[in-house]
């Protein structure tokens, strides 16, 4: 293969870490074994630098998927700490284990046909939620800084809206459940409560319902078909001449001058 032409070499290197010369190296302990890694890396990148290729315990690498829940201690320190491996910076003498999976209780349910009121359904499916001892370990464990114990308290009280909103940032890593002395799977119960809230407590969008009827009635099919037949110049004209809804218009009130395509 002719390979004479040298491509301009971008200096970016994907996700592979190339430490600068003289980078300070620190010891970390991955599942008890010592590795020297450059400082400033996340636990995830430090683990890869040590030579691991992730299969479990790695997902979005951006702090939102919950694949990389991690426990760690510092040598000589009793305190158990937690975080997401992709978001937590590796520090000297960290003793690390990831928890890529934790068995959780997740009973099935039919959201369309609840047998009782939402709160009763929660009691039926997750009776253990009501046995929370209020120790607060879940809250201290949560890598997303969610006050887990507080939303559990709201669930017990029947404030499902509060529990849904308070648990909204949950990435479902399961670290809370792994530490719960009452054996509650807080994060699955919260998922159930959020869906109850979204479906039965949050009011439905009436304008959307109307629009759905129009779409189902095939109202836009012809309009769209005509558009698919237009050539680029015709489309360009429509594109450049289209009106723009003002950013601060009252929701649902603004109308274009020509209403024939609504």
């Amino acid at each position: 293969m002719a390979k004479d032409k040298k491509p301009i070499k971008p200096l970016a290197t994907g996700d592979k870490t190339i430490p600068p010369e003289g980078a300070k190296m620190i010891p970390i302990y991955i599942m008890g074994r010592e590795y020297m890694v450059p400082e400033t890396l996340t636990i995830m990148k430090a683990t890869e630098y040590a030579g691991y290729q992730y299969m479990r315990g790695c997902g979005c690498r951006g702090g939102i998927c919950g694949a990389c829940g991690t426990f760690y201690r510092f040598l000589g320190d009793y305190k158990l700490r937690s975080g997401l491996a992709c978001q937590t910076v590796a520090q000297p003498n960290m003793v690390i284990v990831q928890l890529p999976f934790f068995p959780s209780n997740r009973p099935s349910y039919n959201l369309e046909k609840l047998e009782n009121s939402p709160h009763e359904e929660l009691r039926r499916l997750y009776p253990e939620v009501f046995k929370c001892v209020g120790c607060g370990t879940c809250t201290r464990t949560c890598p997303m800084d969610i006050d887990v114990m507080d939303y559990v308290a709201l669930m017990k009280r029947g404030d499902l809206k509060g529990a849904a909103l308070k648990s909204f940032d949950c990435v479902m890593c399961g670290l809370c459940a792994s530490r719960c002395p009452a054996q509650i799977s807080q994060f699955t119960a919260a998922m159930f409560v959020r869906r109850l809230y979204g479906k039965y407590i949050l009011p439905t969008a009436e304008h959307l319902k109307k629009r759905v009827e129009s779409v189902k009635g095939g109202k836009y099919l012809k309009m769209l078909e005509e558009l698919t037949k237009k050539n680029t110049d015709e489309l360009k004209k429509l594109y450049t001449e289209r009106e723009r809804e003002p950013d601060l218009a009252e929701p649902g009130k603004w109308m274009p001058k020509d209403a024939s395509h609504l």
Binding site: A205, H207, G252
Partner: peptide
């Protein structure tokens, strides 16, 4: 889904 909008736009 808004009143002043449609799949056309």
């Amino acid at each position: 889904d808004q009143e002043g909008d449609s799949p056309y736009y």
